[in-house]
């Protein structure tokens, strides 16, 4: 008995780190998806770069942003989309509709921490498999995306971290709906396109009418892409920066609280499909 206790003290367990490691091994099992993703992302990136170049023809700057900044914007936006890849809503809805959620829930773990570790592992592999190739392709065909300044880059990293949190909480809250609504595919698509359109990932929000811009500044979407991108290309002053970062942090907190609230509610809603 004493022996056993000693052993347990000698070994420190980090369950979620192990989940992370195993998930990396798993995501390396299927290599084919990777190439498809690189090609698709590159096409979107190159197409929007050429689109902006054509629009800028003859103009030095639009809304205070020059064509070279716009090119940086396009490349970095593609890179952010890799970091903000999340499959947690699919992970939950698949487990619920196939009934494997029972397996997740019978273990002495917090399932949401497991989902988070799995998501982080997915992003880690994607950084090597997608982000770096996209950076390379972007640098060759469009231009090296240099940040506006050292300070801008550091603030960008901070803002991107919060974007990651916002993105994950939105996804996990969506995922939790599948405890109530079994088929989630359509909803996930709606969410995906809403984010595409309203976050500034393809069209910067500056090009939207003033009134819509105002409304969007209260919604979480612009804090996924627009804010970190603005910071990266140096399109900020101290007032807009403070306001932006505070709003972003606020959304992290609000979404975290919503997550906690729905998590409690979802626990009683669990239904296991198929026997």
């Amino acid at each position: 008995m004493k022996e056993c206790v000693k052993n347990q003290k000698n070994e420190k367990f980090n369950t979620y780190l192990q989940v992370y490691k195993m998930q990396i091994i798993r995501s390396l099992t299927y290599k084919f998806d990777v190439y498809g993703n690189i090609i698709m992302q590159s096409i979107i990136m190159l197409a929007s770069a050429f689109f902006w170049k054509a629009l800028y023809a003859g103009n030095d700057s639009v809304q205070g942003v020059g064509v070279s900044d716009m090119m940086v914007y396009t490349v970095v936006s593609s890179m952010i989309s890799v970091v903000l890849t999340t499959n947690v809503e699919r992970r939950i809805s698949n487990s619920v509709s196939k009934g494997t959620i029972a397996i997740d829930m019978m273990r002495p773990v917090d399932i949401y921490k497991v989902f988070f570790a799995e998501n982080l592992a997915g992003v880690t592999t994607l950084i090597f498999q997608n982000l770096l190739p996209i950076l390379l392709i972007g640098s060759i065909f469009i231009g090296v995306p240099v940040p506006a300044s050292k300070e801008a880059f550091l603030l960008f990293v901070l803002s991107l971290f919060m974007s990651f949190c916002i993105n994950w909480f939105i996804a996990v809250i969506f995922g939790m709906f599948s405890f109530k609504v079994i088929e989630m595919d359509a909803l996930i698509q709606v969410k995906k396109h809403l984010i595409r359109l309203l976050s500034g990932s393809i069209i910067p929000v500056w090009f939207f009418p003033e009134s819509i811009k105002n409304i969007l500044s209260f919604l979480p979407f612009v804090y996924l892409y627009q804010l970190p991108l603005d910071i990266y290309i140096g399109k900020y002053d101290s007032a807009s920066l403070t306001k932006g970062l505070i709003m972003q942090a606020l959304w992290v907190v609000v979404l975290y609280l919503m997550f906690r609230f729905f998590k409690k509610k979802a626990e009683d809603k669990v239904m296991i499909q198929g026997g």
Binding site: E3, C4, N7, Q8, N10, E11, F13, N14, T15, L17, Q18, V19, M22, I25, R26, T29, Y30, K98, G99, T100, A102, I103, M106, R107, P108, V109
Partner: peptide, 26 residues
């Protein structure tokens, strides 16, 4: 339904469970 991980080798699945349940090596 299985609690083993489809994409991992059996031993790797066990190793993951070892960490989940905090089982010492011996």
């Amino acid at each position: 339904r299985s609690q083993l991980n489809w994409d991992l080798r059996l031993g790797e699945s066990f190793e993951l469970l070892r960490h989940i349940y905090r089982i010492d090596k011996t």
